[in-house]
C-alpha cells in the first residue's frame, strides 16, 4: 500500500511536469465547463488504445466494437464526475476492464447454452500476415489465454502486453500490490503448464 501511495505521489508530481497529462486534465475540465468538443477529442485520442486493450482482454476475439461503445458511453455519462484523482488513461483502462468483465459475464451464459445446444462458434483465424506466427501456435496461445480466469488474464494483459508497472496495474484494478503479484505468478504458472514448449523455443 505504501508503495502504491508513494507511486501515486510520484505520479502526481510527474503530472505537473508532463505536458500529456496536463492535456488530459484540461480535456476533462473543458468538458465539465460545457465544451462538448472535449469528448470528441477524448474519443479520437483514446479509441485505438481502448479497442486494442479490449481485444486483448477478450482473448483476441469477442465483440470488440460493442465493448468499445459501452466504454465510451460510460465515459460520456461520467466524464463530468472525473476529478483527476488518477490520470485519464488509468480511468479509461479501469472502465475498459469493467466493461470486458460485464461482457464476459453476459456471454458466459450464452456460450454455455450454445455449447449445450452443440452450436459453438468456431474461433476466427488470425487476421494478420501468418509469417509472424503460424496458425496452430496462435490458436494454442489464444486458447490458453482465453482459458485463464478473467482476473488472471487481466493482470497478464495489463502487465505484459500494455507494459504497465505492477503498481499501476494495482491502481487500475483497485487491488493491493501483493494481490497483483500473486495473480501474476499463478497466471504464469498456468500458462507455463500449457505452453512450456513454446516458451522454451
Amino acid at each position: 500500500m505504501t508503495s502504491v501511495m508513494a507511486g501515486s505521489t510520484i505520479r502526481q508530481a510527474a503530472r505537473r511536469i508532463r505536458p500529456e497529462s496536463q492535456l488530459e486534465e484540461q480535456l476533462a475540465e473543458r468538458y465539465i465547463r460545457g465544451d462538448e468538443s472535449a469528448f470528441e477529442e477524448i474519443v479520437a485520442s483514446y479509441q485505438g488504445y481502448v479497442a486494442g486493450l479490449t481485444y486483448r482482454l477478450l482473448g483476441w476475439g469477442g465483440d470488440v466494437e460493442d465493448v468499445v461503445q459501452e466504454v465510451f458511453l460510460a465515459v460520456f455519462r461520467n466524464l463530468g464526475k472525473f476529478r483527476g484523482d488518477s490520470s485519464l488513461n488509468t480511468w479509461l483502462t479501469a472502465i475498459t476492464v469493467n466493461k470486458c468483465r460485464s461482457w464476459r459475464r453476459k456471454h458466459l451464459l450464452k456460450m454455455k447454452l450454445l455449447k449445450i445446444a452443440g452450436r459453438q462458434k468456431q474461433a476466427a483465424p488470425p487476421r494478420s500476415d501468418q509469417g509472424v506466427m503460424n496458425r496452430e501456435t496462435f490458436d494454442r496461445v489464444r486458447r490458453t489465454l482465453q482459458g485463464l480466469p478473467g482476473h488472471y488474464r487481466e493482470v497478464m494483459v495489463l502487465h505484459y502486453m500494455e507494459e504497465m508497472p505492477i503498481t499501476e496495474v494495482a491502481e487500475v484494478l483497485g487491488l493491493r500490490r501483493n494481490v497483483v503479484d500473486v495473480r501474476l505468478s499463478r497466471a504464469r504458472a498456468r500458462i507455463r503448464e500449457k505452453l512450456a514448449d513454446l516458451i522454451e523455443k
Binding site: G52, T54, R127, R142, M156, Y160, M161, I199
Partner: peptide, 16 residues
C-alpha cells in the same frame, strides 16, 4: 513468456 504474448498479439492483428 512476455515475448510469446507480444508476438501472439502482433499475429492477431489490429482490433477494429
Amino acid at each position: 513468456l512476455k515475448q510469446l504474448l507480444i508476438q501472439t498479439d502482433r499475429a492477431a492483428g489490429p482490433a477494429v
